[in-house]
Design a protein around this nucleic acid. Structure first.
Length: 424
RNA sequence: GGAGACGUCGCAUAGUCAGGCCUAGUGCGCCACCCUGCUAAGGUGGUAACGGUGCAAGCCGUUCGCGGGUUCAAAUCCCGCCGUCUCCGCCA
């Protein structure tokens, strides 16, 4: 949720952000209107309520005829108080409804939609398989050859977009995620294994129940949601708390399974494990002071790039356009690895600066030096996911179907330097 | 799944049975000041969040797990929900 004070003082900034995102700028005026209604109705209720309380005290002291007369007056007053309270409540609810619909204010992100990103940098050079004299195989071919990926049985047991990781596939995922965890811990993150089922208010607070609510699994019977990322559980971790940021940002590295319905992506990335309903991820999450958020965002990006360097992948960094941010982010950087068989870049990491948007919805504040409280900023970023296996297999494949293991990963694979095919 | 106990201002606790003097008391902790040549001890005052209003000091409202209800008036009475703990059952 954006800051109501800011909306009052700089409505144009919010309107511009809504427009850049392709959202409705008229919401801003609806909010201002609702806020005015709320304030006037609240003032009316509060003065009546004060009068009622004062009269109530007199009732307690009075007796006899005097009391009867007071009771008559105060009865009528009570009725009015109730009416005004209802009006004030309605106005408050109306305002909340609108405020919860307004997305975070984009900051520095290019305007436009999914295709309007800006490429910030390109790192590493894709291999020239033509020069090497062979046609690269895609990750599923390779994965099946290695006995690492089994989508057939995944579909048999759970349906499309499910898979088994077996043998070196399972080991590779564990290796990658353990390496990610170790890096995070070395950088001072607190490792956390999070719940993957959360209550509606937590899911709503993180901003995932807006336009993309269809992406999320919901357990109707229990009124719980399956998280699409541990960001959700980590954002909720300090909900309704006043945290201490005097010693710097609070940084958590979440390890969790992630679940996505992939509604509306029928026919897209149907082969292999690029786009699946369940995967595993190590996610960085940071609570910091609002003025430190931009710098923290750069740090999260740098840590992501560290991981990409360790697995020796060519990638580019993009600055996501406003319309592709998701409702909570003010800015988002994605790292996309080169995918040789599709000759395109594939998102491997995503880091978002949610400024105070999520924290305000979730009630995460800090104590300032003057003793007051204020909302903190939250950020998140990917350190590793199952999908990385796709890029690792394809980029590090050799003509015989074996796969080179990046040096940094070897300690996590018992020293294995090459993944060898299990058959022909 | 069954039974019971509990949920109060950072922590601990009083208040709930008998609704109004609760503007939620007390202790601890914390902060400021005073006193004591230092330290210990002591004294005085302060000590929540959110919102409204005001240039400001301040004033007002809301919040006693959450949501409803009864009443002129609810921490207190009634209903529903959530959470914690204990015991029993069931399953690891």
């Amino acid at each position: 949720m954006i800051d109501l004070k800011q909306l009052r003082e700089n409505p144009d900034v919010v309107r511009a952000s809504q427009t850049a995102r392709g959202d409705d700028p008229a919401l801003v005026d609806l909010a201002l209107e609702a806020d005015a209604t709320r304030r006037s109705s609240l003032a009316a209720f509060e003065s009546l309520r004060a009068e009622q309380k004062a009269l109530g005290k007199q009732v307690a002291k009075a007796s006899g005829e005097e009391k009867a007369e007071l009771l008559a007056r105060t009865k009528e007053l009570a009725r009015q108080v109730k009416d005004h309270q209802a009006t004030a409540n309605t106005a408050q609810e109306r305002l909340d409804e609108i405020l919860w619909e307004i997305a975070n204010i984009a900051q520095g992100a290019p305007a436009g939609g999914e295709d309007d990103f800006v490429v910030l940098r390109t790192e590493g050079t894709p291999r020239d398989f033509g020069a090497e004299g062979f046609t690269p195989r895609d990750h599923l071919d390779l994965g099946e050859g290695l006995g690492a990926i089994d989508t057939q049985r995944g579909a048999k047991v759970s349906g499309s977009r499910f898979y088994y990781l077996t043998g070196v596939g399972a080991r590779l995922e564990l290796a990658l995620l353990n390496m990610a965890m170790d890096q995070a811990v070395a950088e001072g993150f607190t490792p956390v294994i999070t719940p993957t089922l959360v209550k509606p208010e937590t899911m709503r607070g993180t901003g995932f129940l807006g336009k993309h609510a269809d992406e999320i699994y919901r357990l109707e019977k229990d009124d719980l949601y399956l998280v699409g990322t541990s960001e959700v559980a980590l954002a909720g971790y300090h909900a309704d708390e006043i945290v201490d940021l005097a010693g710097g940002p609070l940084r958590y590295a979440g390890w969790s399974a992630c679940y996505r319905r992939e509604a509306g992506s029928h026919g897209k990335d149907v082969r292999g494990i690029i786009r699946v309903h369940q995967f595993h991820k190590v996610e960085m999450f940071s609570y910091c002071r609002p003025e430190d958020a931009a710098a923290e965002h750069e740090r999260l990006l740098a840590w992501e790039e560290n991981m990409l360097a360790k697995v020796e992948l060519p990638y580019r960094v993009i600055d996501t356009a406003a319309g592709d941010l998701g409702s909570s982010a003010a800015r988002k950087f994605d790292c996309e690895a080169w995918l040789p068989t599709q000759e395109r870049y594939l998102e491997l990491t995503s880091t978002s600066n949610c400024t105070t948007f999520q924290a305000r919805r979730l009630g995460v504040r800090e104590r300032t030096e003057d003793g007051s409280t204020r909302t903190v900023a939250t950020l998140n970023g990917t350190l590793g996911t199952t999908r990385w296996i796709v890029a690792i297999l394809e980029n590090h494949q050799r003509e015989d179907g074996s796969v080179y293991v990046p040096a940094a990963l070897r300690p996590y694979l018992g020293g294995l330097e090459v993944l060898e095919p299990v058959k022909g």
